[in-house]
Design a protein around this nucleic acid. Structure first.
Lengths: 351, 351
DNA sequence: TTGAAAGCGCTAACAG
DNA sequence: CTGTTAGCGCTTTCAA
């Protein structure tokens, strides 16, 4: 007695190349080639195969394809945050470019946590991404995982936030120059009691901004008051806390260079809370632009970090590297910035 | 003469299960099991294998694993935008939950374009994701691709923005109730000349908000002025344009229910441009909360849409469905909202 | 222009 | 507790 094979509901089998091949009486490989538009196959056959595939609702299996081809056409992106205009704008552009260039992108968010970041890079390597764009988490001190990627010959591009690593691809903003510009501007306005709410200085952006700050002060012959240089992180709370600390010490400056836009928001919150007016009682400027800054009270001036350029140059660099793994020479790209002046940092308000 | 195999630099071969197996003199499958912590394998062997894998720098091949296991442990997420607090906050929570539940997530952004959205869903199906969470693009009118996913037995959860589709999983906010609450509040404040800058009404959120608006007006015996109900999209420009249109017609209302936060920003821009003050000359409230609304001038009141709940309930529902594909009954989950009152929509400003 | 052979790296099912 | 067999769906040689 023959056993009847029950084609139960669970097994709604997906159409494979083979199914199409059988139905058409050709070989699997012919179908494979036709579907990819390979010139080997005659136009007529290609047409027929494509049509049949459509009718059957064929959907190529990405896993199988990548496995066999040893290429995933996928890039990984590791960002420290996503719910922050700077990064969401960047990722937005990255998706666009990737789409145009036929790449899939795997985005992961480390939440400023180096442990997570490491796991995520491992996962990305595990998915055999062709390359990775990464903006490192603020607490990154261990670079081993980057070396691992390198050893595996998976190209890396560090974007905006780069580690202290010799010979790697970087695409960053001229942070030092930008900080210099901002402080220079403030001093020319008349400010003298100038503070810097800095981020982590183990990350390039924190360090560079700090350097630019000091350089501008020096060049103008101004001393830096150490209690006005506060290292924190890049978040809102950090801005709030730093402000409050100085307020309690009755040691508030006239002007603050805020290391990020969220930090500036923290300063706004704190100032509002203690009844101090911006820019009259205390003035500031921050790094990072976003549309809503126009509608803050007062509109917040900033150093613009061009997200589209960051995204585009990072992608180009990465793809360039992917297409030439063997003798690629790492590049370090620096992008210029400009001051965007709105309601803060535009005039000296103390008499 | 024997040919010498040259192990050139290009071929930095990745370690495979087999390599580990050979080195240890065990079988591939033993290694496979050990690495996955399968109870079949003795503790000692497992330890040894894990150690060796580490030393060799083994990284499992996700493609091969998924292909063989017929399960990718990956979910797809399709969002209409990302550079917008509402969505970036949601995706943030989704990543967190996915990580905790051992899922990889593939995020795609449709940019409010149904064509793109379709391609992206196809790509996701091609990657054999286990399920998809989607917030549909504003111009979605064709639901075929959703049916396709259904046919392929890939569970779908529509989040926040849901299509007119019978029998599907949805997680949404009580938009009608929220709009009602907002308008009810405005009317009680004393407003009578009330407008609604609506989004696309082919999408549930646009339609529901519109319904709530009308219902509240009706219940208070107020007539709706048709020229004050403007359908547009969910973006900033739409808010700006609608405002300007009414301004030019000299037909401005007292109060606007703005369909999203970006639309409200558009209204702020327009008002500023023509020298009208909010909330004194014209008042408003919008859907969607974000921290910065506190710092707008004036602070913008809103209907809060709890992003964490949206993310969590969507993920739970999806995973529940994935784990029980066969006899899962679709669910429709509705989340309550609340008014967050700040500097707008708090008092009637006309005499 | 088409196809056959071989294998990508892994795992399920079962046998020992 | 360990291993064998078979195959996931596709593509890359290379031969016909």
């Amino acid at each position: 007695m023959k056993k009847q094979k029950i084609n139960n509901a669970q097994t709604t089998k997906l159409i494979t190349l083979n199914d199409i091949a059988k139905k058409l009486g050709v070989s699997t490989i012919t179908v494979s080639k036709a579907l990819r538009g390979h010139p080997d196959i005659s136009k007529a056959t290609t047409e027929l195969i494509k049509k049949t595939a459509d009718e059957l609702g064929y959907s190529p299996n990405f896993m199988a394809r990548s496995l066999a081809a040893r290429k995933s056409n996928t890039i990984g992106v590791v960002l420290p945050q996503i719910d922050h205009h700077f990064f969401s704008s960047i990722i937005d552009h990255i998706y666009n470019i990737a789409f145009a260039r036929q790449y899939q992108v795997f985005l992961t968010v480390s939440h400023e946590n180096a442990e997570m970041q490491k796991k995520q890079i491992q996962a990305l390597l595990s998915m055999r991404v062709d390359g990775i764009i990464i903006s490192v988490s603020q607490d990154t001190t261990d670079f081993e995982i980057f070396e691992t990627a390198k050893k595996r010959r998976v190209p890396l591009v560090f974007m905006d936030r780069t580690p202290d690593l010799a010979d790697c691809n970087t695409v960053a903003v001229d942070d030092m120059g930008a900080a210099y510009k901002a402080i220079d501007h403030a001093i020319k306005l008349g400010y003298r009691k100038i503070a810097h709410f800095a981020g982590h200085t183990n990350i390039n952006i924190g360090r560079e901004r700090m350097l630019g700050f000091h350089q501008a002060m020096n060049n103008h012959g101004l001393e830096v008051n150490p209690s006005w240089v506060i290292e924190g992180d890049f978040g809102e709370k950090s801005g709030y806390d730093s402000f409050m600390q100085l307020y309690r010490e009755n040691n508030l400056p006239d002007f603050i260079l805020s290391v990020t836009y969220p930090t500036a928001i923290g300063i706004y919150t704190a100032a509002q809370e203690v009844g101090l007016r911006i820019p009259d009682d205390i003035d500031l400027i921050c790094f990072g632009n976003s549309e809503v800054q126009n509608f803050l009270s007062p509109p917040l001036s900033c150093v613009n970090q061009p997200t589209e350029q960051l995204a585009a140059k990072s992608m180009n660099l990465l793809i360039e590297n992917i297409n030439n793994i063997d003798n690629f020479k790492n590049k370090n790209i620096v992008i210029d910035t400009e001051l965007i002046l709105r309601g803060t940092c535009v005039k000296f308000n103390r008499s």
